[in-house]
Nucleic acid binder design. Structure first.
Lengths: 221, 221
DNA sequence: GCAAAAGTGTTCCAGATACACCCATGT
DNA sequence: ACATGGGTGTATCTGGAACACTTTTGC
């Protein structure tokens, strides 16, 4: 038992975990195994521990649910409406994470009945205020695609320009001219040819590229 | 006394309160009257109450320190390093506020020895991690000046284009071409002539403008 | 009439957009 | 040989940047 002179809220982290799969933007949801909202889908997350920072808490939860570490993770917003959790006052610090398409590996965590990747257009109703969190995460993702090199965080170690273009087209939901896209992306000087080619059908092989500084997300324009 | 099954952090809000005064960007600091960091300067802020939202807490603190309400206030970032406060685990949700130059009125709050407006180049050493908060607030302010109509939040009800230009020049710390600035700002169609003029010296009077939708901050470009 | 700030247009350049064909391969 | 996706260049448009003189007033 822990006792304080003044009331304290509980603090959680919730994470919007994005990846690209089957040419669709997908995010990870867990089916809640406990109260409240038992049986409803929700963002992965949990209570912070007293000896870890907020980002450490988010990375711990991320790894518990997906097994991945070292991926892009950024704080999104903090939600603290007094009644957002029916149990007690809970303030949640929301993060969003991007997982490269070749590192997806779901692990069912103990406190969830089920885990699943959902496309944006097949989302179930969510627990708490998680739909609001999702809306803000998506807004941020779309915005950052435009003014930063965030999209590279979805790419595997080697990729073709067409694959990269599909990432932009999938998230922005609009077609992009191939020549202009290539001119623009190469002018950023953030990627380089690996020298390898990908051949996967009756057509000319595609050059493979890699990101020069994989961890880095630069502001552009 | 308040008792919980698991340990809970304390949660505070801290506010970076900006205004423009004497052609300088200034922010409000308070001299701490209590422990920890007694006698040091810090951002205004305080513990959240259990029945108010985070933004309500920030607005309450803002009004306690300055007397103003209804001004621009936006969440900045949440800081939660385990040791950022020596007393106990304290997580702070930082906000920043912009006060129009004609509404500045300091009120000394009970928990502060002194209150003062500081220019960016005359800041004292600050308590806690408040310098980090300030750095992020300034970064956000400068960025938003470029891609939104945030600057209007500093303006009084009526203002001249030269005054508006000075706001940009002061915050961005660079000179702007008068003709290009006027062309750009008028093309936004966010301000309109009031019909009044300001005459204040041996020169041609300046037209006065007002913001069409004073509360609104639009994303531009 | 002079000093001081307000007001006003045009040229130039760079970056974004629009657009269509040839290339290398597997079957 | 043909079907498939990979790869490339030019003309145009648009928004930003550079730049100097006239206007109105108070003294």
């Amino acid at each position: 038992m822990f006792t304080y002179e003044y009331p304290h809220p509980a603090v959680t982290v919730d994470i919007v975990i994005y990846t690209l799969r089957d040419d669709e933007l997908k995010l990870l949801l867990i089916k809640r195994g406990g109260k409240p909202f038992k049986g409803k889908w929700a963002l992965p997350g949990g209570f912070i521990q007293m000896d870890e920072s907020l980002e450490e808490a988010a990375r711990r939860e991320l790894e518990e649910e997906t097994g991945v570490s070292g991926v892009f993770l950024e704080q999104l917003y903090t939600y603290g409406e007094p009644k957002r959790d029916p149990r007690e006052r809970v303030i949640t610090v929301a993060y969003y994470a991007l997982i490269p398409s070749d590192r997806v590996e779901i692990r069912a965590a103990s406190d969830a009945e089920a885990v699943g990747w959902f496309a944006m257009d097949e989302l179930p109703k969510l627990a708490f205020d998680h739909e609001e969190i999702l809306a803000m995460a998506h807004e941020r993702l779309v915005a950052k695609l435009d003014y930063s090199t965030l999209a590279f965080q979805f790419m595997p170690g080697e990729f073709t320009l067409t694959q990269l273009q599909q990432v932009y087209e999938t998230i922005l939901q609009q077609e992009i001219d191939k020549r202009n896209f290539r001119k623009w992306i190469l002018a950023l000087e953030c990627i380089e040819e690996t020298g390898n080619e990908q051949r996967d059908g009756p057509h000319r092989p595609a050059k493979l590229y890699r990101v020069k500084e994989p961890g880095k997300v630069e502001i552009i324009k």
